[in-house]
Design a protein around this nucleic acid. Structure first.
Lengths: 342, 342
DNA sequence: AACTAAATTGTCATCGATGTCATTTTAAAT
DNA sequence: ATTTAAAATGACATCGATGACAATTTAGTT
């Protein structure tokens, strides 16, 4: 394993000069730079990260906290982060985290200190846990919040417009002819639940249609199991809705199951749409029409914002709120002839 | 941030002594050890990992290579690794890896060198990619293979008995009265496919039952989409099987969809069982009876074996093959009154 | 009390990089 | 040709830990 000294010796320059080349320092004569680069290539030299970081006091990894790594949303987001990190030549350190663990503070500081990360990414809903925010603020952790409920001038947030997306997918249902549309909404503590429901109602207002009756708007909690029970209750009526907008794909999958149980065909008898575009959306039949979160874009933006923040540190030219564009993916669960991609 | 010198000064000992305490060196008087520990606690001292590793030439993270982070199996395994790593006070660095990428070697060496990992964990099917194994061998990477197809005296493998599990779940179907059982098998390149099919046949032999006819044993590739098509073909007959053993849960989910499409009730008209026990197994209706892979146990074992290997290095007392016990989880897809847990 | 071996502790160099500041080289200006 | 400022390079200390080995303390023996 070649070191900076091996390179220096072979190139007949000082280690400092090699260091300058590595770090793109401008004060190196072009000819020596090329020489050094050539030797580095010959020796297949790569800087020792530990030494580098010891000196710089820095770490280089990106930390991602997961509350439930099996959840579709978190899996998808992580997947996107892995791609984005690869593009940026960085590495991802993943850690389980729940504020329910009583020693979460110790646990988190250990992770931050010991695991070689310089930045942290927080997903919903932990990004809205107050004491966690205080902790991050106090410890000056370089982080971004993904789709937080509460905005805050101390933290950069990266999100999509949930309400608009909800409105748009509801309008889509209206446009293909549905009028009796039900909505299964998510966990009440989750900001997304409220926003998505608001968007749902807005679609009707915008089209000058009557607000759906209250029995058509029910409360679940984003989970399949609960969703199944709720959907069964919802469909236990003679006056069935012709479409359901579920708060997320898991719940939409549950709605499909409930509909099938009751002998309804999808989408002929009932259209069902979800939200998030997780793996599950294409691992069931029929595949789900849904709103695709801009996972990859969010991941890329997170990385670039974090880097920017680390440089500018406390300067004020860091954009605080980032809103990225979503898209609607049409699949089998709402249309006999899907136009969208898989 | 307190350093070893701060501790040494306050405790009025040398930094070396503090170092000894940190590393559990025996040659420290009990009283001084306690004193030092107390001061460490007071200052909330934690060793600087970079410095430590610079000196020790070591890294501390565990690397996990994922080919498809959205796949149920990989998600579940990662999830288990996160738990096991937490228990062991270690951290997980996750990286996308596919040998289809043409510069996979560079990519992998960079990951290993730059991302602070000391160990590597390989999942199927990349653990069976020959050139990758050669690379790991040549570069002396400390790693374990999870459920590899090809055994090899240079690598430690951690697996479950796929064939026995397949046999057992087939026997379960036989025991609850099924005789006409179909099997949708996995991708032919995947060792698990063969083993699971073998196990399937063995169950019939053991019970002195005729081998299922060839039309009942079809080939898919572990993916939902393919599985759906195959299952539809399988069920497009008048002489329906009464049960299906699918090679994995995704395929079982596809079989459920195909059955529903054809108006069959599960499990009344047809029982369906899967394999792996991934998230999907309980995110569809009916929930799937399946074989639970010993994810957590595999993860824990991986960590302990890796640590052991690093110590013993080339010594021969490292157990090469580890086979861990699976379990069968009975759920709604095969039984009207499931006995198993969720 | 003196001696010795064992137990404990300390000194200093080192890992591989970068920062500070001094030194040398280069090129432009007189 | 000499001076001078700028550009390029290098010497050395440093980051926070541990290893090798030296020095000291302790306790046991005679």
């Amino acid at each position: 394993m070649a070191t900076i000294y091996d390179v220096a010796k072979k190139a007949e320059v000082s280690s400092k000069t090699v260091s300058r080349v590595i770090n793109g320092d401008s004060k190196v004569k072009e000819s020596t730079r090329e020489l050094v680069l050539e030797i580095m290539r010959q020796l297949d030299y790569r800087p020792n990260q530990q030494a580098r970081q010891l000196r710089l006091g820095g770490k280089s990894g990106i930390g991602l906290l997961l509350e439930d790594p099996d959840s579709g949303y978190q899996t998808r987001f992580q997947s996107a982060m892995l791609h984005a990190a690869m593009e940026a030549g960085r590495y991802l350190s993943v850690e389980l985290f729940t504020h329910l663990q009583d020693n979460w503070k110790t646990h988190l500081s250990r992770f931050i200190k010991d695991s070689n990360i310089s930045d942290l990414i927080l997903l919903p809903t932990q990004c809205d846990f107050g004491p966690l925010r205080d902790f991050l603020r106090e410890n000056n952790v370089n982080c971004v919040l993904i789709s937080p409920t509460h905005l805050d001038n101390d933290f950069v947030s990266i999100a999509m417009d949930e309400r608009l997306a909800a409105r748009e997918i509801t309008e889509y249902l209206i446009n293909i002819g549905h009028r009796k549309i039900a909505h299964i909404s998510g966990h009440p503590d989750h900001a997304a639940s409220l926003l998505r429901r608001q968007g749902f109602y807005e679609a009707f207002e915008k089209h000058n249609l009557p607000r759906p009756r209250d029995e058509y708007v029910v409360q679940s909690d984003f989970q399949f199991k609960t969703g199944l029970k709720i959907a069964e209750e919802l469909l236990n009526t003679d006056d069935l809705p012709t479409a359901i907008f579920a708060c997320n794909d898991e719940t939409a999958a549950a709605a499909c199951s409930a509909a099938h149980k009751r002998g309804l065909r999808i989408p002929e008898d009932m259209a069902i749409v979800g939200f998030d575009d997780v793996y599950l959306a294409t691992a069931i039949w029929p595949s789900l029409t849904t709103v695709r979160q801009p996972y990859l874009e969010m991941a890329r933006r997170s990385i670039s914002v974090l880097a920017h923040m680390r440089e500018k540190s406390s300067e004020s030219d860091v954009q605080l709120r980032h809103v990225l564009p979503y898209s609607i993916i049409e699949r089998e669960s709402s249309s006999l002839s899907p136009k969208g991609e898989i």
